[in-house]
Design a binder for these strands. Sequence first.
DNA 1: CTAGACTGCGAACGACGTTCGCAACGCAGC
DNA 2: GCTGCGTTGCGAACGTCGTTCGCAGTCTAG
Lengths: 213, 213
Amino acid sequence: MTPDKTKARPVPAAPAQRPPLSRAAITATARNIADTEGIGELTLRRVAAELGTGQASLYRHIAHRAELLGLLTEDLAVSFPIVEPAPGDPPTEAIAAQWLAVYDFMAAHHWAAKVIAEGKQLAAGTRPLLEHGLALLRAAGLSEADALRGYRALWHLLLGHLLNEHPFGHGDPDAGGPGGSSPDSTPEPAGAEFEWALRRLIAGMGRMGAWHR
Amino acid sequence: MTPDKTKARPVPAAPAQRPPLSRAAITATARNIADTEGIGELTLRRVAAELGTGQASLYRHIAHRAELLGLLTEDLAVSFPIVEPAPGDPPTEAIAAQWLAVYDFMAAHHWAAKVIAEGKQLAAGTRPLLEHGLALLRAAGLSEADALRGYRALWHLLLGHLLNEHPFGHGDPDAGGPGGSSPDSTPEPAGAEFEWALRRLIAGMGRMGAWHR
DNA sequence: CTAGACTGCGAACGACGTTCGCAACGCAGC
DNA sequence: GCTGCGTTGCGAACGTCGTTCGCAGTCTAG
């Protein structure tokens, strides 16, 4: 179609014109697949197909699949929510609010916990969360060292819950929401279970730490 | 080789005589590989080779790889340590001792946390641990419902720590989690970090729960 | 001695991540 | 202009994985 006789574009085959295929484009496409179809469907072939390129082309921009996963989590991490403490709230409440927000955010991307857990390093993207999380703990009276321990404890608790909570990667649009609660079969709303544990951990850090008593 | 003209023994190849290849044998071999070489080396071909059989033979005894992983965790779970509380110990101490033992046990099998996390819930094998864990929490004054919540919280905390603590699979001893951004400070003995968090969580369950204050 | 079930397994299939080598460009300097 | 070079896209292939197929032997009941 469109037999462009003018010498203009003897372009390869069916490239249409696509954006020049960058790291960002690859990452975005990958994230899209992971979000909508589950991490299990995220293959390099799939990404390439989605972008309309050959799979080998991806390797001009990423070294290997693991790097793509790294970019993915990094990309997600930069939009981790930061919850400023409401004035008048006790520090424990600020901490709880912050981590509940992170939980909700991660739960909305079912693949995140799995990828992070096995991919290991979360790097630069979590810097703001780290900074803010530490500040909240410090403001609650924890020492520098304990704040770091506390941060990691909260993070681990979060990760553990996310990994065991929802079965695994199929892009089930969780948009279902809190509408109709099942009669009684559901043991607990999942998020509630984390909140329960979260609040106990926070309370415990206070009890044995510094701010309370 | 061995041009056996007489029809006597057209026996396959090198069967020597091996034990008849059972579920248990396969599981044991698989576990051995996972323990010594890491979960990354655990392939069906590898298991078959180790057993001296063809890979296709394995499918006479297991349905698919996932089932083997299930057997593996099940096999591990039955030997989860159960720590009877020392007389005179406060209930919180009994709980801590129990879970520290489980942590050490799981940490000795680096693959366990990963497999459990992605394999989903473990089943029958954890029954004794569940029973005992609940009993300890109940003995500490938690309600039935809270004991279950507490058990799961402890389990999730444990899982989160194990997954982020030691990298294995492809050993890049990079920092775990988003806490790694801190360049200075000591990495801490790993088990100690869990213990810190564990004791806070236990304390917190008491504080907001029932037994203390 | 025969029929049927069960077990082992060589060979292949399809999907994956990754590598190779070539074609097509963009843009210096001549 | 033409030439040479670095970069980008990509078809084809390789090696490995989980899994399936179909046959060849062995065991056991009748």
